[in-house]
């Protein structure tokens, strides 16, 4: 009617979520903290993917990074130090309809939560994990972190830390059933967004390590990381994360790396001198524990009662 053909009318989604639909409160991180950048990227991802806020859950542990869920206008679970993974896995196990993210830090993930972390990798549930690695305990005021470089001066090691750091990439890549390992940095926004997006799109457990600035306690390190561009190399490959032009322009070192090659990924992860940004490894076919967890959902009460009665028959006198 009125000259407009019926198939001209496209169906609009009932609701279009804007960035403000995902924003909540004012983030209380220090000025210059890298956490702000990740928050913006994640909110952008939510908008791009139009994730319904009520169907999205951010689970965190304890630490600066773990305040993250409080600044998302979605469901959140700000739980215990080191225990974000079991909680997130429990959320996802019987609720495949929920989008689950884990926000954790280097201490939360690689120290107190290390046991849960490596098993979360092995469970390979469809969860996107962002690990904020600033190489220091910030919330408790500058103690050595498991990823602090050897010799890092902190309140617990005033003359310098005495052990080499945990290498989270190496550890992840060493775990059986690993399916997605990537590294990015908070001050490379295009790359950061592309990496988080690739992690979200990965069908399984995506482990994203974000190299973070802690300007409050790690000023010299931040200075070195952000200015010494020779120490950074961008991973490129058709199967990898496609970096934006800005990133490729800012960082001249590029490394072609096939993310299906786990041995090559492990070699890159071992390289102490260079920080590679990009997708280290991806296997879309790894066994998914969340699929096992959700395989028998939705029994009716009658079905449940019938099944229990059939079992009780075996114990009948």
């Amino acid at each position: 009617m009125f000259g407009i053909k019926k198939d001209f009318i496209c169906e609009l989604p009932k609701k279009y979520y804007t960035l403000s639909n995902y924003e909540k409160g004012v983030a209380r991180w220090c000025p210059g903290c890298g956490d702000h950048a990740v928050l913006s990227s994640v909110q952008r991802l939510c908008r791009e993917k139009q994730l319904p806020p009520e169907k999205t859950v951010f689970v965190s542990g304890i630490g600066c990074s773990s305040r993250f869920p409080h600044y998302m206008n979605t469901y959140g679970f700000h739980g215990l130090h080191g225990r974000a993974f079991p909680v997130a896995c429990g959320v996802k196990f019987r609720r495949p309809d929920l989008n689950v993210f884990v926000i954790t830090g280097d201490g939360d993930c690689c120290s107190i939560g290390a046991g849960a972390w490596i098993h979360a990798i092995r469970y390979n549930m469809n969860i996107t994990t962002i690990m904020f690695d600033n190489q220091i305990y910030g919330m408790t005021k500058k103690q050595t972190s498991p990823t602090s470089r050897l010799g890092t001066i902190s309140n617990t090691h005033p003359t310098g830390s005495v052990l080499p750091p945990v290498n989270p990439l190496q550890t992840s890549l060493g775990m059986s059933n690993v399916s997605f390992v990537a590294q990015t940095a908070d001050w490379v926004p295009g790359h950061l967004f592309a990496t988080i997006k690739a992690g979200y799109e990965h069908p399984g457990f995506a482990f994203i390590k974000v190299i973070m600035r802690c300007s409050k306690f790690m000023g010299p390190l931040v200075e070195e990381m952000t200015t010494n561009r020779d120490a950074v190399s961008i991973l490129t490959h058709e199967k990898g994360i496609q970096p934006d032009d800005g990133t490729l322009h800012a960082y001249k070192n590029h490394q072609i790396h096939d993310p299906t090659d786990i041995n090559a990924a492990r070699e890159l992860a071992e390289d102490q001198a260079t920080s590679y940004l990009g997708l280290f490894y991806q296997n879309k076919d790894a066994i998914r524990y969340d699929q096992y967890g959700a395989h028998n959902l939705g029994f009716t009460p009658e079905e449940k009662i019938t099944a229990v009665n059939a079992q009780l028959d075996k114990f009948a006198v």
Binding site: V57, F85, P86, V87, G90, V91, F93, R94, L98
Partner: peptide
């Protein structure tokens, strides 16, 4: 923790 996660999610 896993049980609490599932409980939080309604199960």
């Amino acid at each position: 923790g896993f049980a609490i996660g599932a409980s939080y999610a309604g199960k």
